[in-house]
Nucleic acid binder design. Sequence first.
DNA 1: TTGTTAATGTGATAACTATCACGATAGCCG
DNA 2: CGGCTATCGTGATAGTTATCACATTAACAA
Lengths: 229, 229
Amino acid sequence: MKQKEIKIPEATIKRLSTYINCLERLDAEGFQVVSSELLGESCQVSPAQIRKDLSYFGEFGVRGVGYGTKNLAEQIKKILGLDKIWPTVLVGVGHLGHALLNFTFFREHGYRMVAAFDNDPGKIGREVTTDVIIHPIEKLVEITREERAAIGIITVPASSAQETADRLVEGGVKGILNFAPNKVKVPENVTIRNVSIVSELDNLAYLLSKKHGRRRLTRKKTISRPPKL
Amino acid sequence: MKQKEIKIPEATIKRLSTYINCLERLDAEGFQVVSSELLGESCQVSPAQIRKDLSYFGEFGVRGVGYGTKNLAEQIKKILGLDKIWPTVLVGVGHLGHALLNFTFFREHGYRMVAAFDNDPGKIGREVTTDVIIHPIEKLVEITREERAAIGIITVPASSAQETADRLVEGGVKGILNFAPNKVKVPENVTIRNVSIVSELDNLAYLLSKKHGRRRLTRKKTISRPPKL
DNA sequence: TTGTTAATGTGATAACTATCACGATAGCCG
DNA sequence: CGGCTATCGTGATAGTTATCACATTAACAA
Ligand SMILES: NC(=O)c1ccc[n+]([C@@H]2O[C@H](COP(=O)([O-])OP(=O)(O)OC[C@H]3O[C@@H](n4cnc5c(N)ncnc54)[C@H](O)[C@@H]3O)[C@@H](O)[C@H]2O)c1
Ligand SMILES: NC(=O)c1ccc[n+]([C@@H]2O[C@H](COP(=O)([O-])OP(=O)(O)OC[C@H]3O[C@@H](n4cnc5c(N)ncnc54)[C@H](O)[C@@H]3O)[C@@H](O)[C@H]2O)c1
């Protein structure tokens, strides 16, 4: 496949990440070779979708046979840049930050937590995991620079999210994963992704109230005005 | 707008959830009225997109003026079913489960944690928050039924995710939010949403390695075969 | 070597989603 | 009360993503 300046769907990238997981599980179950059908069954994506997703990046299978399980996982990791280590810092060691720092899955998949920061004096200096201690927020820029962290994770309250993002950018990170519910602004050359757990729940609530709630009103003009101004 | 059997884009629902947040912030900042432009600026969505999203559900604005901030937030909550309380249970009170149970935002936005479950005897009976105690996993079906929980949150290790989902379904939940990295199967009438934090990070890694990595190879046939079988 | 088989890779097509451009209209002011 | 202005609501259009269908081809067996 030619690799011109083809636009790759964002959804494809998201799926590739899940393929890795499924492939690792299938590999553990003893499948040395998987067809797009088996992989699709395993991660709930249509076989055609899988083949299309992969076709953006090259040819990884053998016609009439399938894909080498280990090999394909390896190739996808390379595509996603997970063959390299990504030094990562986290800001805001509260409930969620603590959970993320203790999530071993990350370090097993290409990310290395190199530092954590908080502004609560009571937390400074504590070891969260064996290799990460909590630094004062004032040292964020310095340490982030020093460690050449490429990714920053924001788990501070919404009110501090923007200033935290600014500091991370100053520290030189190129990507930010933001768990605070408000969007933050970053320069052009920094990538930001927002994780909105609440939106996911809300989505669920919407689907449930549509299916199990009272009947939907049909063909009725629904106008709901704001109070007179 | 007529409300026939129009298909509403999933992306619209996701955005509606974020609009609520932005509206609440703008309201707190003193804006009694917002235009689609201001709201769009605030939550980084185009004004046209916002108007289109809303138009699926009715007319909520005043031409030449804008939307009543409080009113619009209220209306969107009604659309998403957040005007009702959703009794919710959580299974697996580890690092992540603990963080979610302590996330006050949920209860302020229509969700009520009615019970938590774990299979670790050491955790049973402990109070996680003032109103939630940890029950043994064996009582899941019974208590979930009793409390009429509509939503279940899965924060157990991947290996236990499927059996947990099965129990939740047996307990009568109609929607599941799954944080385990593997997809689980549920009956037709139950809605499942997967939250993949790792995928989000991987997405970031992909974008970064594309932008900041070595030059992309262009127009070269990239074939990477699995080892000879 | 050649035919058979199974599963890939991909162009064409359908479905979905976002953007645009503008007509409609509420409020305001003279 | 009529014209002006700001902003909504929406049909038309462009762009994006998923699905389909099948030609292609590696492996294997005879
Ligand atoms: N807890 C969850 O399950 C959950 C889920 C989704 C989103 N979030 C979001 O994640 C963020 C953190 O949530 P949490 O529950 O962990 O909150 P938390 O209050 O437990 O933790 C916040 C931490 O950030 C620190 N902090 C505050 N201001 C800071 C600053 N300016 N610089 C550095 N550190 C600072 C605090 O000391 C605290 O340790 C919030 O924005 C929340 O909305 C949380
Ligand atoms: N920690 C994170 O930041 C994070 C992020 C993304 C996804 N996840 C996923 O969330 C899940 C939980 O992660 P964690 O870090 O909280 O793990 P954890 O080990 O801290 O917690 C798991 C909890 O589940 C309980 N448990 C195990 N099997 C159970 C069963 N069969 N029934 C009931 N309870 C059971 C354990 O006793 C434990 O309390 C995992 O699937 C993980 O991949 C975690």
